[in-house]
Amino acid sequence: MRRGIYLIEEVDFRPMNSRRPLEYLTWLTRYKREDENLQRHTLTEGMSIRSREIDLVGAFYAVGITGHQQFKAVTLWHCHGGWDGGWRQMLEIYDGVGDKLFLSDIDDLRFSAFSRPLGAVHGTPGLGDTVRPLYLYESATVRPGAALDYLAAVREERLPVLREHGHDLVGLYEVLMCDNEVVTLWGTTIDAHLAVQRARDAALGLDDEVAPDSRLLDWSKRARDYLEGPWRETLLAPFPGSRLAPG
């Protein structure tokens, strides 16, 4: 079985116009639904690449109060067929760098976009197996070369704890074409998110109304064996029309 290859993209919108993320996510989910009927991939003027093998599995509005820049959208793409499938198709649009590459229906809508290629590691379930009303998105900078070790520790040590607190693993990803970044994604709910925060507070002695879970603090210490730079968890709300959005 081939390794799963994905792409995650973070899109910012400025000036602060709350309608722009809505326009972007509505446009994106609509045209990707149309792609499901395509027989072959193609580069279409104003639409970039059209392909059913480049699958929009997650389109999210970032929950700004959890640490995202406002306003932001996050998208997760699955390259069916791995390197030789959807990934190759995305690269083919740069062959010759033709005029179509520089035309888009969403020109001037986005302020900036940052993409990272992802490789799934052992333990990542099939996408679509977990559909939840909220997602926990972690990006972390690890010591050079420690990405796979960190993700293995997440799978073996952090996963059982979060599962008990109502979180389901969506993906464990090594950020490709670099050696010091990882991404993890979890499905959750508002109640489960709040329960984790309070259990951690209780373990710190800052909440005496709920049961503490010291394992949450143990993981924070354990993670430092691998981390070398910024680490952040934030929340994402799924936008209707992608596979990870509740029907």
Results as ranks from 00 to 15, higher is better:
T184I: 04
G247V: 13
R132A: 10
L206P: 05
L118T: 00
D12I: 08
Q69E: 12
G205D: 01
T26V: 10
R3S: 13
L56D: 02
Q69A: 03
F114W: 10
D129S: 15
I106S: 06
G187R: 03
R50N: 07
P15F: 01
L176V: 09
E45S: 14
S139Y: 05
A202I: 10
I8N: 08
T75D: 14
K221W: 05
L134V: 01
V63M: 08
G67C: 04
E164K: 08
L235V: 07
N37S: 14
L176N: 01
H167S: 07
L176P: 00
R88G: 01
T189N: 00
G241N: 05
L43M: 08
L136V: 12
L159N: 05
R50V: 12
P238F: 00
L185R: 05
Y94F: 15
R155H: 13
M16I: 13
L151T: 07
G128Q: 04
G46R: 14
W87Q: 12
H167Y: 15
N180D: 15
F60D: 02
F13R: 03
Y94A: 11
D149W: 04
L22N: 13
P246M: 06
E156T: 11
G205R: 06
L217E: 04
T42H: 07
I190L: 12
A199W: 01
G205Y: 02
R232C: 08
E156P: 03
P125E: 08
R3Q: 15
T44C: 01
P21L: 02
Q70W: 14
T26G: 12
G205K: 06
G58K: 05
V121S: 00
V142D: 00
R52A: 15
D55Y: 09
S18H: 09
R200K: 13
H122D: 14
L194D: 11
L91I: 04
I106G: 01
S220A: 14
T234S: 07
M90N: 10
Y61G: 11
K32N: 10
K32E: 10
R19I: 09
L91C: 07
R232M: 12
L159V: 15
E138L: 10
M90T: 06
D105K: 15
W77F: 09
L172E: 07
P15T: 01
T189A: 00
G46P: 13
V170S: 00
G98V: 04
R163N: 13
I5V: 15
E228A: 15
A146W: 11
L217Q: 02
S139P: 00
D218H: 07
L244W: 02
T66S: 14
L91F: 09
H193N: 11
G46F: 13
L235Q: 06
T141E: 10
R40I: 12
